[in-house]
Computed example of a mutant assay.
Amino acid sequence: MTNSINKPPIWFWIVSVIALIWNGLGVHGYLSQAYETSAYTDAYTTEQLEVMSSLPSWYTALFAIAVFTGAIGCLLLLLRKKAAKLLLILSFIAATIQMIYFLFVADLKGVDFSANEIMAYMIIVFALFLVWFSNHSAKKGWIK
């Protein structure tokens, strides 16, 4: 039985803030890519940029869905709203489809993306952790 006055432990707040920062960095990455800022273009070689620009539009849409629903989900965690669970599940699904496509399906034209591959696995793991964390928080009554 959950009590409406269940106070989350301090580590709930720490994890939620770190998760919001992580997803905030994802939003920044998406906006940098969408607007082709110098921070984005300077991080890649010409060949890598060509490959990235040739990815399908649905791939970019999944990127947007993953980071924006993730950021809003983390904000809802901080506001202790149960809707965070649904948004973090959606973020996980979008990120996982996007990363699986990048890792195993996309034609990278022989261009080295090894650093991006490591990050792709980290994104999937962290998104899955946030699904677990939001579910755990709901069960404990920390979000309602």
Rank of each mutant, 00 (worst) to 15 (best):
A106Y: 02
L128A: 13
L79H: 09
M119F: 12
L31H: 04
V51N: 04
D112P: 09
N6H: 06
D42N: 06
W13C: 00
V51H: 00
H28L: 15
W142K: 06
Y35R: 12
L77W: 08
L49Y: 00
A34Q: 13
L20T: 05
V131T: 12
S32P: 03
V67I: 11
L130R: 03
F113Y: 07
T60Q: 01
N6T: 13
Y121W: 15
L49N: 02
L77H: 08
S57N: 09
L62M: 10
V111L: 00
L130A: 07
I10S: 11
A94E: 10
A71I: 00
W11Y: 14
L31Q: 04
I65E: 07
L87I: 05
I100T: 14
T37G: 01
K139L: 08
T45A: 10
G29S: 11
I18P: 12
A84P: 05
Q33C: 12
A64F: 09
S54Y: 04
W13M: 03
S91Y: 07
Q48R: 00
D107T: 00
T41Q: 05
A120T: 03
V111W: 02
Y35P: 02
A71Q: 01
L77A: 08
F63R: 04
N116L: 09
G70I: 00
L130T: 07
F129W: 04
K139Y: 07
V67C: 05
F68L: 06
G110A: 04
